[in-house]
Amino acid sequence: MDMRDLRWFQQVADGVTLTELSDLEGVSQSGISRALARLEDEVGTPLLRRSGRTLRMTRAGLDFKRHVDAAVHELDDGLAVVHQLLDPESGTVSLAFQPSLGTWLVPGLVNGFHRAHPRVGVELRSKRDELTPAVGGGTDVELELTTLPPQDGTTRWRVLVREPLMVAVGPEHRWARRESVDLAEAAQEDFVANHPRSHLWEETLRLCHQAGFEPRVALVCDDLPTIRAFVAAGLGVALLPVPDAWVPTHEGLHLIALEDRRAFREVGIAWSTEQQMLPSARLFLEHAVREVGGGPEPDPGRP
């Protein structure tokens, strides 16, 4: 079948009139009609029927169009892949990230990448559910900035930076002038918590359990700026990552180092080994490792 005929069938089935399609394609209406009739002959049944001045799909046309849409979509994806192979400085990178990384890591990386590769677009996706990987499993996300290490062998994860976790308290808190604290001392404190699907809250629970207590949750917030505001208002304490906690959002927020050397989280970039990485995504991966990771460039092709 002629792909041009399939595309014309798609457009007419979606409501484009023969007159509009003729003007758009620079082909006579009779030429388009002959192409549609040729397609119906190849399929073996009418796909369109006339209703007044418009053409509407028959039952066979409805069923056929679903498969045409899928086939044309796959073909367009394949053409895009080939185009990027011929010209790596084009295309679009899909990048997911945890909201807590959106205040410091993501803006700088994307800005530097745009300066180095101005014709490559970056599609940003902030994710709320931090405990479910954004790459792999048939998703269309190519790269993910995350603090969650991969849970299976189909995803690779390159650590970029280690963020210390510090205790945040308000200006009137009795620890406000301290430089360090043992987390076990916080057993009787009220905690301002991140939402349950936050990896930061998982890390907070891990450290509290290692210190021998279950944190007493006073408030639950959806994002770190709100947590910082509530802590600065004296409504509880929280464990916050640095450098995010240094964002000058609220005056009076005091950060205190934890004596536990395990009080940190690692930030990495993840990608799936189940699908071939497009050149534009490889460019971003190499840029992230070079600018933040401080190590040799990764080989995306190796599992």
Rank of each mutant, 00 (worst) to 15 (best):
G236V: 06
D77W: 00
E42F: 03
P150C: 04
V141H: 07
R38V: 14
S94N: 02
H254Y: 00
R197T: 02
P164N: 04
L47I: 05
R115F: 10
G91F: 11
R119N: 13
T17M: 11
E179L: 10
C221Q: 07
L24C: 14
L183F: 11
N194F: 00
E74L: 15
R177A: 14
L48D: 13
V217Y: 11
L21E: 03
A238Y: 00
L207E: 03
S28E: 13
V242P: 00
R216M: 12
G293F: 13
L75P: 03
C221F: 01
G15K: 12
F64Y: 07
T17W: 11
L240M: 03
R59I: 00
A134G: 09
A193H: 09
Q11S: 14
S33H: 14
P298D: 07
V68I: 15
P150G: 02
A281S: 13
L239V: 11
H195V: 06
P46S: 14
G44T: 01
T58W: 08
S22P: 01
L283H: 04
M3N: 06
D223M: 03
R66A: 10
L235K: 04
D2E: 08
G108P: 00
G112L: 08
W104H: 03
R34W: 14
R290Y: 07
H67F: 03
I256V: 08
P88C: 10
A71H: 03
A186I: 15
P133A: 15
K65Y: 05
A176D: 01
W201R: 14
V161I: 07
W175L: 15
E189D: 10
K65I: 14
F230M: 06
N111M: 07
F264D: 01
D222V: 06
P171Y: 08
C221N: 05
W271I: 13
T132V: 07
T273C: 08
F264M: 03
L109K: 11
G295R: 13
E185R: 12
V247S: 12
V16W: 13
L101W: 15
S272I: 09
F64P: 02
E42R: 11
A281W: 02
